[in-house]
Simulated assay, not measured.
Amino acid sequence: MKKVRLLVSLARKGAVGKKVRVTVRELAEELGVSPQTVLRLLNEMEEEDLIEKSVEGKRTLVGVTPEGANFLRALCDEISEALSTGVIVGEVVSGLGEGAYYVKQYSPLIQEYLGFEPYLGTLNVRVLFPKTVFDALCNVRPVIIPGFTKGGRTFGDVKAYRVRIDGVEGAVVVPSRTVHPPKIAEIIAPVNLREKLGLKDGDRVRIEVVE
């Protein structure tokens, strides 16, 4: 694990494809280990052809080898796969109180496209795993609830992803115009999820994406 962290740290410093100047003390502080441990790790990684290093005067130059870069690439792929499990773990939080209004406006379309009459409100969950809502939903095709105009106001398209919480069916809804991946999952369901599941702010929940 320490070798992986050290290799990632070197990559962050721009050491992929070229050698960069590093100090053992700086690397030790980043990893929370002793300078002696860093020296041992660097020597082992050099033997494993993950890095190459040289000393020029008082400067230590370290570069990530093609083998080390391939290791990082494979690690990245494995992490991406692990994060795309279709599961969201988070904690219940209070919203801004706007959920009921918007659910009411979209209610006829939610019934048409998702097949249930929604409770007028949303359950808001702060995502703890994976990093954002989209990391769990990236491999799932959403149901697009089309936008409309009402009373001179335009309501945009909404992406809906079917989910299940403790056996209760619902959907994570995300405005199509969202630019940044959301950290809050807004969930609609045919019931009041807080009451049905006895949830309060701070409670942990596990959300399963239904494909």
Results as ranks from 00 to 15, higher is better:
residue 2 K to P: 09
residue 159 K to E: 14
residue 148 F to H: 03
residue 193 L to C: 05
residue 87 V to E: 09
residue 69 A to T: 02
residue 145 I to C: 04
residue 202 G to N: 13
residue 60 T to M: 13
residue 85 T to V: 10
residue 147 G to H: 06
residue 100 A to N: 10
residue 11 A to Y: 04
residue 49 D to A: 15
residue 32 G to W: 10
residue 91 E to S: 05
residue 47 E to S: 10
residue 108 P to L: 08
residue 90 G to D: 00
residue 73 R to V: 13
residue 48 E to K: 12
residue 41 L to D: 02
residue 129 F to N: 06
residue 118 P to N: 04
residue 124 N to E: 07
residue 45 M to I: 02
residue 28 A to C: 11
residue 38 V to R: 04
residue 107 S to E: 06
residue 119 Y to P: 03
residue 14 G to W: 09
residue 170 G to P: 02
residue 135 D to T: 09
residue 136 A to S: 04
residue 138 C to D: 14
residue 161 Y to Q: 06
residue 23 T to E: 11
residue 171 A to E: 05
residue 185 A to C: 12
residue 115 G to A: 08
residue 141 R to I: 13
residue 128 L to T: 09
residue 31 L to R: 08
residue 115 G to I: 08
residue 134 F to E: 14
residue 127 V to P: 00
residue 200 K to L: 09
residue 1 M to C: 13
residue 182 P to E: 05
residue 53 K to W: 10
residue 22 V to I: 15
residue 151 G to A: 10
residue 1 M to S: 14
residue 47 E to R: 15
residue 209 V to T: 11
residue 14 G to E: 12
residue 12 R to Y: 12
residue 176 S to Y: 11
residue 160 A to T: 07
residue 131 K to W: 14
residue 137 L to H: 01
residue 96 L to A: 14
residue 196 K to G: 06
residue 65 T to L: 01
residue 20 V to D: 05
residue 49 D to P: 05
residue 8 V to F: 02
residue 5 R to F: 12
residue 61 L to I: 05
residue 1 M to W: 09
residue 156 G to Y: 11
residue 53 K to H: 12
residue 196 K to V: 04
residue 149 T to Q: 13
residue 208 E to A: 07
residue 181 P to C: 12
residue 89 V to M: 12
residue 130 P to Y: 08
residue 6 L to Y: 02
residue 121 G to I: 00
residue 163 V to C: 01
residue 175 P to M: 12
residue 171 A to V: 11
residue 163 V to Y: 00
residue 4 V to E: 13
residue 142 P to R: 08
residue 102 Y to D: 03
residue 182 P to N: 11
residue 65 T to A: 07
residue 136 A to L: 04
residue 173 V to I: 15
residue 120 L to T: 06
residue 67 E to I: 14
residue 73 R to A: 14
residue 30 E to M: 02
residue 160 A to K: 01
residue 144 I to E: 13
residue 33 V to P: 03
residue 191 V to G: 01
residue 65 T to V: 04
residue 159 K to F: 13
residue 35 P to C: 10
residue 145 I to T: 07
residue 150 K to A: 13
residue 167 G to K: 09
residue 203 D to Q: 05
residue 138 C to A: 15
residue 22 V to T: 00
residue 166 D to Y: 13
residue 211 E to C: 09
residue 165 I to L: 15
residue 116 F to E: 06
residue 121 G to A: 02
residue 8 V to K: 10
residue 129 F to K: 09
residue 37 T to N: 01
residue 156 G to I: 11
residue 162 R to I: 11
residue 33 V to E: 04
residue 60 T to L: 15
residue 16 V to E: 07
residue 4 V to W: 10
residue 144 I to W: 06
residue 172 V to F: 08
residue 169 E to P: 00
residue 89 V to D: 06
residue 49 D to Y: 13
residue 27 L to D: 04
residue 164 R to E: 15
residue 188 I to A: 04
residue 64 V to T: 01
residue 104 K to G: 13
residue 121 G to M: 03
residue 201 D to G: 07
residue 81 E to M: 11
residue 151 G to V: 08
residue 105 Q to F: 08
residue 14 G to D: 12
residue 65 T to K: 01
residue 27 L to G: 01
